[in-house]
């Protein structure tokens, strides 16, 4: 029951967030100087042509009517038409979003799969050399700019060693898989195309590493401090006094409790990854939302930029909802209290 009530409350919150985001992005995009109609028409076009385009796009109407029209569209899933590509924004995002989401998820997987064990080891061997190494790595990860790291790994793995491709999602000679989930790694597997799968995997390694490296540090540090805290708890002493082995105590008692606060950090990381992917995608020519948004911003393509903001914030709220649901699953105390 508590579970359903929580979800209901969150979905209501989701609506408010999307409304807020739409308002802010609308306000910002319409208040900044710059005239998309003029940009479309070009410098030499006459004022008449520009005025025509304005009318076509509805830019001549008062702002509140424009916003009202936008909201109406939003309610029916219509994010407007991109000024730059002249296609519906929703169609554009549908084409680019899965690529970004796939990259973000693989990056998150990498960050967690490596960050959690590193954090545990670092906590168990606190102040020993291995802990120093992990902590240095974590700080390096957090303070390395993604675009610089991206260029670095391209130079090494593509340029010098020639081991991995330097950009794109799949080899140019291969046909991309028919879109089922939009995730190349999954689609190629579903279609049993082994060569395409391997190629897609090779292509995603470097960008996912680059994108995930920051969060590897964040996750490792979070797990380390949560583990250190848990290892001080009384129940750990009880487990030891009952003859539980050292690693039994660490993995079966301390880690599950340490994961509770870490779930938040990992969840928020996914939100950050979706935004953060923009830079990494640019470096790796990854055909995700990043390049689309950068180009849209330069073209003052309001509908596209606003659509991006709405979709990402939507995803952010959904991720938070999933995090809260996970909380209830792993921490029995929460499902009881709420």
């Amino acid at each position: 029951m508590a579970f359903l009530r929580m979800i209901k409350k969150r979905l209501l919150g989701l609506l408010l967030v999307v409304l807020g985001v739409s308002f802010i992005t609308f306000a910002i995009s319409h208040l900044i100087p710059g005239d998309p109609a003029r940009l479309i028409a070009g410098d030499k076009a006459s004022e008449e042509i520009v005025q025509n385009i304005r009318e076509q796009l509805g830019l001549n109407q008062p702002l509140y009517i424009q916003y009202g029209t936008y909201l109406k569209g939003l309610a029916t899933g219509d994010l407007g038409t991109s000024i730059r590509t002249t296609r519906p924004v929703l169609e554009d995002l549908k084409a680019f979003f899965p690529a970004t989401l796939e990259l973000s998820l693989v990056a998150l997987l990498f960050a967690s799969a490596l960050g959690i064990p590193l954090g545990v080891i670092s906590a168990v061997y606190k102040d020993k050399p291995i802990d120093q190494v992990v902590r240095t790595l974590a700080v390096t990860g957090i303070s390395t700019p993604a675009f610089w790291l991206g260029l670095g790994v391209i130079v090494v793995f593509y340029g010098k060693l020639g081991l991995l491709p330097g950009g794109g999602r799949i080899d140019e000679g291969l046909t991309p898989p028919a879109a089922m989930t939009g995730f190349y790694l999954i689609d190629t597997l579903l279609q049993g195309d082994k060569a395409a799968f391997v190629s897609a995997l090779k292509h995603i390694l470097l960008p996912a590493f680059t994108l995930g490296f920051v969060h590897l540090g964040v996750v490792a540090r979070q797990i380390r401090s949560a583990m250190l805290e848990q290892l001080q708890e009384d129940y750990i002493r009880t487990a030891k006094a009952n003859g539980t082995s050292k690693w039994g105590v660490i993995l079966h008692h301390a880690l599950p409790n340490a994961l509770i606060p870490s779930v938040t950090v990992i969840g928020l990381a996914l939100g950050d990854l979706l935004y953060g992917a923009v830079l990494t995608e640019t470096v790796f020519a990854w055909p995700g939302m990043g390049a689309y948004v950068v180009n849209s911003i330069q073209a003052l393509d309001f509908p596209a930029v606003m659509g991006f903001a709405v979709v990402v914030s939507f995803a952010y709220v959904i991720v938070n909802l999933i995090v809260d649901m996970l909380y209830m699953l792993i921490d029995p105390r929460i499902s009881e209290v709420s």
């Binding site: 129940y235 009880t238 008692h253």
Partner: peptide, 16 residues
């Protein structure tokens, strides 16, 4: 040899 500790409130693993 078994042990019993002072703080029953925290001596058991909260999530098991």
């Amino acid at each position: 040899v078994a042990m019993i500790f002072q703080e029953p409130m925290t001596a058991l693993n909260p999530t098991r």
